[in-house]
């Protein structure tokens, strides 16, 4: 006891030391596991593989990046992935906003709890189960096409599937289907930060806007949307980066074209080209950084 007490007295007089002691484990974790591995990845991407021995040559070189950007197929993969990420992010934002607005502003506490559970419940289920379930739902004779037929919209679906690039033989084997699964999968990550942001917009600002003559649409554009931008930015970082990095959804649902995540998986696994896999994973990091810089310039974080 006496030892403990004198230790406590010692620490009490040295606040800085005490704080450092408390922060050391999380800082070590963050520094070694997170930043360290990220740095290792970055370094790997500047190595190259020896064509004959298939061994990694630990000499810094830009050869791997040259390989990455000189193949049109690789550029296609990057473009395809980014296009999907942008589309999924936009769709998630459009779907999430009304839901989040209702939850933050109009729902009774009970209704809000119900919505929270509704939004999060799917996340408690295995990711793989959901993806494979979606493949069945979207299959040619699946529930989705049955339901579309019930609504008498089969010609519209067939028209969409006949479209170049995004179409395909069925929803399950087209980019439209992949887009649906991605949007479903990441929607909660957009809704939750948006609810948090909208809850922080005082109701009196909305009232004041109407009082000053703004129609509901104007209030949304000039008051609610700008103040919810940080939430929208946070949500879109989730949906954007999750889509950029995912390799399971594109390999289970959708057209056969490769995505960045699949390339990383393949290069570090079967192909054994670790530097190329690393170079591929650096692409999303740079894209996210560019996106954040853009969002910041557009004032997404001014209201924080």
């Amino acid at each position: 006891m006496a030892v403990l007490r004198s230790a406590a007295a010692f620490l009490y007089g040295r606040r800085g030391f005490y704080l450092a002691l408390l922060l050391l484990p999380p800082l070590l974790w963050l520094g070694i596991i997170y930043l360290g591995s990220l740095f290792a990845l970055l370094v790997q991407s500047f190595y190259a593989i020896d064509e004959f021995t298939a061994r990694i040559v630990p000499v810094l070189t830009l050869a791997t990046y040259r390989q990455l950007f000189s193949h049109p197929a690789n550029l296609d993969i990057i473009l395809r992935t980014v296009a999907m990420a942008v589309a999924v992010t936009a769709a998630a934002a459009v779907i999430a906003f009304p839901v989040a607005n209702y939850m933050a502003r109009y729902a009774s506490p009970r209704m809000k709890a119900f919505f929270y559970v509704g939004v999060m419940l799917p996340m408690w289920t295995s990711y793989l189960v959901k993806v494979y379930a979606w493949r069945l739902v979207l299959a040619k004779q699946g529930i989705a096409s049955w339901f579309v037929d019930l609504l008498g919209l089969t010609p519209a679906l067939e028209g969409a599937l006949a479209a170049p690039v995004i179409g395909g033989p069925s929803l399950a084997s087209s980019y439209i289907g992949m887009f649906i699964v991605f949007t479903y999968m990441w929607l909660p990550f957009m809704i939750l930060p948006l609810v948090a942001a909208l809850e922080r917009v005082p109701g009196s600002l909305v009232q004041a806007s109407a009082d000053l003559g703004a129609r509901p649409g104007q209030t949304f554009r000039h008051v609610v949307l700008p103040l919810a931008l940080p939430g929208l930015a946070a949500g879109s970082i989730f949906t954007f980066s999750l889509t950029l990095g995912d390799y399971i959804i594109p390999s289970v649902v959708g057209a056969p074209g490769y995505f960045i995540g699949m390339m990383v998986y393949q290069q570090q696994g079967t192909a054994g080209n670790l530097p190329l896999a690393a170079a591929f994973s650096v692409v999303p990091i740079i894209l996210i950084a560019v996106y954040l810089a853009l969002a910041r310039r557009m004032g997404a974080f001014d209201a924080l």
């Binding site: 600002l205 009232q207 004041a208 109407a210 000053l212 003559g213 129609r215 000039h222 004032g299 209201a303």
Partner: peptide, 28 residues
């Protein structure tokens, strides 16, 4: 409310935090 010819000074002021003073006043 947006069509009434009445304006309100709110108890908590309800100024728009993302706008300057002049932009707040120019909102109407």
């Amino acid at each position: 409310p947006f069509r009434r010819n009445v304006n309100t000074v709110f108890q908590d002021y309800a100024l728009f935090p993302h706008m300057s003073v002049a932009e707040n006043v120019a909102y109407g």
